[in-house]
Design a protein around this nucleic acid. Structure first.
Lengths: 349, 349
DNA sequence: CGTTTCCGTGGGAACGTTACCAGTTATTTC
DNA sequence: GAAATAACTGGTAACGTTCCCACGGAAACG
C-alpha cells in the first residue's frame, strides 16, 4: 500500500510542497473565491502529485455538513425496496452525496438503533420508511427527514413521498371494467393493517362514485405471501362455481400464489380465471402467463424522496405530501371478455 | 425539532451537567477502564437527560477509525447483489459498523468515482466487485479491501470471496446423472467472458475425470438474458429431434427463457425437456414448473466477505481466497429418467 | 495624493472527540 | 509507617479541515 492510512497527505503537506499557507490550499481545494488562478493550479498539481485525498471527516466536523444521507427501509434484499434504494442512491450521487443504507426488517428496535446510528454519523438528513407499529416520536428526530411508504400518514407534519394507491386501484378497476370484468373478487392483506383499510375503502369509493353496488363484493384475506395467495384462491375456486372468474390481488406475491392455485386446480389462466396483481415486482415477468399488474413507481419514490430531502436541506420549503402515480402493466393474466358477450354482460351488470 | 443540529449537546455539556471534566466523560462514554462506577452512572444519566449523541465524526477524526465500511457492487437493484449487500450489512451491523453502499453499473468510471468517495470518507475498509475490464490499480487502494465476484482473480494479492462455481457445476452434473441425464446440452454466456471460460472448462474436466467423452457436447451461447435463453432453446429444439432432452444453463434468466421457448413450441417441461439453471434467483420459484437450479450463496458471500474484511481490520492474517459452496435447489424442471429405462440409457451412454 | 475598495494571502481559532501525561487520592506492600 | 502501587481524575494537545480576521499591495475613487 502506498500510504498506510496513518500518514495520508493533508492540506498541510500540500501547502509545504506548493509553498503557500494551508489557508490558501483550503481555498484552492474547496473551490472558493479570492484565489489567484496560477496559485490554484500550482496547488492542484502539488495535491495530485502527493496523491492527496481530502479528509471528509475533518471537513464535516468543521463545516457541520457531512454530505451523507441516511436511508432506512425494511429490507434491501426485497426487490421493491432495492428499487427504492437505487432511485435514492442515483439522485444522491448526482449531488455528490453518499447514502448510508440500513434494513430495519420491520422491527422497530432495529429501526431505532439505525436512526441512532444515523444521528451519530451526523448525516445531513434521512429518508425513512417508518415501521408500522412504532410509537416513538420521529417528529423530533433532530434533522430533516422524509418519510416513504404507507405508514407515513402517522406523521402528518413530516414531508413524505408515496405511491398513489387510490389512483392505482382506479386504474386497475377501469382496466378490468374495459375487459368486461365488472365485479372482480379481491384478495387483500391482513385486517389490522393500514394498507388493507385504504385499499378496501378505495374500492368501495370507486364503486359508489360510479353508481355501482359496493356491497357483497367477494373479499378474501391473505398476508401478502405467495402461500396465502394460493390458499385464498383455493377457497374462492371451491365456493364460486362461475368460471370466467376474476381476482384483483393487493400485491403481486399473492397474485402469483393465486396463479399457482389455478393451475393446480386444473384450470387455466386467463381462460378460466383472470388475475390482476399490484406492485410490479420483476418476478411477474416470468410466470406463465406473465402477471398483469399495477406497478408502483418504486425507483421514482426513491428518487423523489431524495429530491424532497435535498430541497429541504437547501432551505427550500417542500410539499408536505407527494404521491406518485401507479402504472398499468398488462401482461397475460387478464382475459378480454368485452368482445365476446358484451350485451349479456351489460344486462347482468 | 428539539435541537437544531447546530447546538447538539457535546461531552463538554455532559461534563458541566455532571460536574466532572470532559476527560472523565470521555472515559465513561467510550467504555474505558479506570472509571468509578458511581461517576460513570452519574455521567450516563446526565448524558441521557441532555439527549447527548456521540459525534462520530470527531471520534473518527481523532481516533483514526470511522467504523464505516464501503461496498461497491454493480447494481443494488439486482436481486443477486441485493442479497450480497444484505449479507454484508447484517454482518457489519453485528459489530456496530455502518455500510456505505454504491452501485457501479459495471462502469469503471463510476467505480473509480465511488472508490474515491470511500477514500475521502475515510472508511476503514471496503468490499468491492471490480468491474471486469478495469485496469487501474486496486492494489494500492490505501486501505484494506476484499474482492468479491469472478473478476477477483485479476488481483491475486488481494483477499477475495466467491462462490465455488466448479463445485456447483459438479453438483448439477451429478444431479443430472442421477436422474438419467448423462449428456445435457449447455447454454453458456458470451465467448469472451471469463465466467464462460471457467464454466466450460469445469464441464470438460468433469467429463474427463469420470472417463466420459467431453467432446461433441452440445453448447449453445447466450448473453445471460431471458431473450437469449429463449432463442437458444428454439435453436436446440429445431436441431435436436430426440425428446427427453436436457439443458443446463449458465444462469437462471436464460433458463427461464428456455422454459418459455419450450412452452411456445407446444412441449412441456419437464416431460419433454428438462432444464437446470444456475444462480438461485427468487423469480425461479414462480415459473411453472418451478425452476430447478444451482444456487450461489449470495448472502453468504456478502457475510463472509465482511467477516474477512473485519478480520483483516483487526490485524488477523486472512485466507487469501475463499470459495463458498453452491447448493442444489431441486424444483420442478427436471424429469427423473432413472427408473424408467435405466438399462437402455446406460447402453447408449 | 489620500482614501476607499478589492484581491490575494497568511495566521490563528474552532469543530468534538480521544490520547497522553500529570496530578490526587486510596490501597497495598515490605 | 514509609514507599510503592493502583485507581481515578483533570488538563492539554492533537486529528485535518473551514471560518474569521488581519494584513499588504494594487486598483479605483474623490
Amino acid at each position: 500500500m502506498r500510504h498506510s492510512k496513518r500518514n495520508m497527505p493533508t492540506i498541510i503537506d500540500v501547502a509545504r510542497r506548493s509553498g503557500v499557507s494551508k489557508s490558501t490550499v483550503g481555498r484552492a481545494l474547496s473551490g472558493g473565491k479570492n484565489i489567484n488562478p496560477e496559485t490554484k493550479e500550482k496547488i492542484l498539481k502539488a495535491a495530485q502529485e502527493l496523491g492527496y485525498e481530502r479528509n471528509h471527516l475533518a471537513q464535516s466536523l468543521r463545516s457541520g455538513r457531512t454530505g451523507m444521507l441516511g436511508l432506512v427501509i425494511p429490507d434491501i434484499a426485497n426487490p421493491f425496496w432495492a428499487e427504492v434504494a437505487r432511485g435514492a442512491q442515483d439522485k444522491a450521487a448526482e449531488t455528490g452525496a453518499s447514502l448510508l443504507v440500513f434494513s430495519s426488517d420491520w422491527n422497530s428496535e432495529r429501526e431505532a438503533s439505525h436512526l441512532r446510528a444515523l444521528r451519530q454519523a451526523r448525516v445531513d438528513g434521512a429518508i425513512v420508511n417508518p415501521v408500522e407499529n412504532r410509537i416513538e416520536d420521529l417528529n423530533h428526530f433532530g434533522m430533516p427527514v422524509v418519510l416513504i411508504g404507507s405508514s407515513a400518514e402517522r406523521y402528518p407534519e413530516l414531508p413524505s413521498v408515496g405511491s398513489d394507491i387510490i389512483q392505482g386501484i382506479g386504474l386497475g378497476l377501469d382496466h378490468l371494467n374495459s375487459l368486461g370484468h365488472h365485479r372482480p373478487a379481491f384478495l387483500l392483506g391482513p385486517f389490522g393493517r393500514l394498507a388493507r383499510v385504504k385499499f378496501q375503502r378505495a374500492v368501495h369509493d370507486y364503486f359508489v362514485v360510479r353508481g355501482m353496488d359496493p356491497t357483497d363484493l367477494l373479499i378474501e384475506q391473505g398476508d401478502y405471501t405467495v402461500k396465502s395467495g394460493k390458499a385464498a384462491m383455493e377457497r374462492i375456486l371451491a365456493t364460486r362455481p362461475e368460471r370466467p372468474l376474476c381476482l384483483f390481488a393487493a400485491n403481486d406475491l399473492m397474485a402469483l400464489g393465486a396463479l399457482l392455485a389455478v393451475r393446480e386446480a386444473g384450470l387455466t389462466c386467463p381462460d378460466d380465471v383472470s388475475i390482476l396483481g399490484f406492485d410490479g415486482i420483476p418476478a411477474g415477468v416470468f410466470s406463465d402467463p406473465g402477471l398483469s399488474t399495477i406497478a408502483k413507481p418504486a425507483r421514482g419514490i426513491g428518487g423523489q424522496s431524495m429530491t424532497v430531502l435535498l430541497d429541504q436541506l437547501s432551505g427550500q420549503t417542500v410539499e408536505s405530501r407527494l404521491v406518485l402515480p401507479c402504472k398499468l402493466v398488462p401482461r397475460g393474466t387478464l382475459r378480454d371478455l368485452s368482445n365476446t358477450e358484451p350485451t349479456k354482460l351489460k344486462a347482468t351488470g
